[in-house]
């Protein structure tokens, strides 16, 4: 990949939350890159900090946010030093938008969906209401929502339709990157598949890039160009999707992959014993060591990120 094609480069991103028990190290030194018109999947289990990563990128910080540092280069420009106002005007929704977790249930029940979807356009593009509505119609066509749904209220729509509406809302300001936080986790199989069809089409037709945050390995493969596996606040493996789904490197990724039940095929799924560490009391050394079948003495030290064949893995096995 040429440098010109680089959309997003995240370096040493850190986001801690202050709690009474101590700082929660939700995002603890995350690095990854994303090129134009590609989709990276951030895979991880609940509590690994993947949703906090989305918040950190979009600077949507809760009031107990503590340390927040690192660099986020968007098309070569570091957006971390921007003031909150500059960030709001030029980055959030203008360049990077987001479909938050359970977005379909987060729509305002008393405002027509058309008005809700048009709102970011009015705020960020400065268009008037009629223009916004025509933009909304265009976006509805892209995500496969009938145009006459514009004047409906959220409760008149099915879950799948509402999720499409939420995607349209992220799309209406024509951002270059959309962060999807568990976009299909509460949806039925066919609806999930439909939503992924929509996302694939958006990527193909509009050239949008995606960061897909999910715990669902099987459906994540529907969109993934690259895969980043997150464990206990850190990225432990980054790889292109082909090689990742074929043969993951990190023991955690391998275990995770083995735990996926498959319709066809005869391998019995496996599970990972134990629990991920609390993000408040993180173990020294490799954070997966306690649960790792391949651990050895060296794992007591924090592993370096090792790069082999354009893949990165944070594991001593590959040094």
């Amino acid at each position: 990949m040429t440098q010109n094609n680089r959309l997003l480069r995240i370096e040493e991103l850190v986001l801690y939350f202050n709690t009474r028990q101590g700082p929660v190290q939700a995002v603890d030194g995350v690095d990854f890159v994303l090129d134009h018109n590609r989709a990276v999947v951030v895979l991880g289990e609940s509590g690994c900090g993947k949703s906090s990563l989305a918040k950190a990128i979009l600077r949507l910080l809760p009031r107990n946010a503590g340390t927040y540092s690192g660099h986020i280069y968007l098309e070569g420009r570091d957006i971390m030093p921007l003031t909150e106002e500059e960030f709001r005007q030029n980055i959030r929704w203008a360049s990077i938008s987001m479909v938050p977790q359970a977005a379909m249930n987060a729509l305002n029940p008393v405002i027509r969906v058309g008005d809700q979807v048009g709102e970011p356009a009015i705020v960020h593009l400065g268009v008037d209401k009629t223009e916004a509505i025509s933009l909304v119609k265009k976006m509805f066509r892209h995500v496969g929502v009938p145009e006459d749904f514009i004047s409906r209220y959220p409760f008149e729509l099915s879950g799948g339709m509402r999720q499409r509406v939420a995607i349209a809302m992220a799309l209406v300001t024509s951002p270059i990157l959309i962060i999807l936080d568990e976009p299909t986790s509460a949806l039925d199989v066919l609806t999930q598949a439909n939503i992924f069809n929509v996302l694939k089409r958006l990527k193909k037709e509009l050239g949008i890039s995606f960061i897909l945050i999910t715990h669902d390995i099987a459906t994540s493969s529907e969109l993934a160009d690259d895969v980043a596996v997150m464990y206990a606040g850190q990225i432990v493996e980054v790889s292109d999707a082909y090689r990742f789904f074929d043969k993951p490197l990190h023991p955690y990724s391998q275990k995770l992959m083995a735990s996926v039940p498959r319709l066809h095929g005869d391998t019995e799924p496996d599970f990972i014993t134990g629990q991920p560490p609390s993000l408040i009391n993180l173990p020294k050394g490799c954070r997966f060591a306690d649960r790792c079948p391949a651990r050895f003495e060296k794992c007591a030290e924090d592993p370096l990120v090792i790069e082999t064949d354009d893949r990165k893995v944070k594991c001593w096995l590959y040094s």
Binding site: V189, K200, I217, E222, Y242, V260, H264
Partner: peptide, 25 residues
């Protein structure tokens, strides 16, 4: 058949094809 089509398995090839799904809800 539609349900089976809709069910994904982890496979990078999935990202290249659209799924044939029944229309509507």
């Amino acid at each position: 058949m539609a349900l089976l089509t809709g069910t994904s398995e982890p496979d990078a090839k999935n990202a290249e094809t659209f799924k044939e799904l029944p229309p509507g809800e």
